[in-house]
């Protein structure tokens, strides 16, 4: 069981996330939705411990917290640290050395689909290839929580499909996956559940089946409706 409770975060005086609570029983794929700047990335950074929440937050994974929890979470916020001459195999070497749970076999398998050339320089990769690389490195760990922050930004439709297929095929069955994205229609059939963030809060935490059964709407229709409703009925 992965659980986030009482999570609050402020930057200066601006409250970025307020009273965030949710839990997940693996296996589960959770879509994290919301407009730009709503705090989706910050939520992931808080979960992995890259930034620290206000006091009173509890993030646990099967009873693990803090450093032990961090070890079971796979998340790569960026590859900004990579130098100009570094190749994909240099980056790979870092993750292989740094993470004992790095699964070389899975990397090889995933890479059959994603077709990254290990001799390529990372700085010369296109946006889409870079997302593929981050994606492949992330899912190649034997973690319990995987977090993908907008894996589809700047990625063409065929690659998006490939990434989703890879995700479905290669992620362990005891894992929770958090995936933020704006490609709502595309991820609807893939996710079990969505969290919709607005104005620092989670305004929706529902399974796709519930949304379809109870609201008789697609995820995208429901998303738009809830955002409009939350704005007091004013169209965006």
């Amino acid at each position: 069981m992965f659980k986030v409770a009482g999570l609050n975060y402020a930057r200066g005086r601006r409250s970025v996330l307020q009273d965030i609570n949710f839990e997940s029983d693996a296996p589960e794929i959770i879509g994290v939705l919301g407009e730009n700047g709503v705090g989706k990335t910050t939520l992931m950074r808080l979960i992995v411990g890259a930034v620290l929440p206000k006091k009173g937050a509890h993030i646990t994974l099967d009873g693990l917290t803090g450093d032990a929890l961090k070890s079971a979470v796979a998340f790569i916020p960026n590859l900004n640290w990579v130098r100009k001459r570094d190749t994909i195999s240099d980056v790979l070497a870092f993750y292989r050395a740094g993470y004992p749970d790095f699964n070389q076999e899975r990397w090889t398998e995933v890479n059959k689909t994603l077709r990254l050339n290990e001799q390529d320089q990372v700085s010369a990769l296109s946006k889409g290839m870079l997302e593929r690389l981050i994606f492949a490195l992330t899912v190649s760990r034997d973690a319990k929580v995987f977090m993908l922050d907008e894996p589809f930004s700047g990625v063409d439709v065929l690659t998006r499909r490939k990434l989703l297929q890879t995700l479905i095929q290669w992620v362990p069955e005891d894992a929770t996956i958090l995936m933020s994205t704006h490609e709502i229609a595309e991820i609807e059939p893939v996710v079990d559940r969505v969290l919709i963030l607005k104005d620092a809060h989670i305004i929706v935490d529902q399974t796709i089946d519930d949304i379809r059964d109870n609201e008789h709407m697609t995820l995208e229709q429901y998303y738009v409706q809830r955002y409009v409703e939350d704005n007091g009925g004013i169209e965006l």
Partner: peptide, 14 residues
């Protein structure tokens, strides 16, 4: 199920 899910790009549980 996993293979079907991957080909159809649909959640395994579904």
């Amino acid at each position: 199920v996993r293979e079907l899910a991957a080909t159809l790009v649909i959640n395994g549980r579904t």
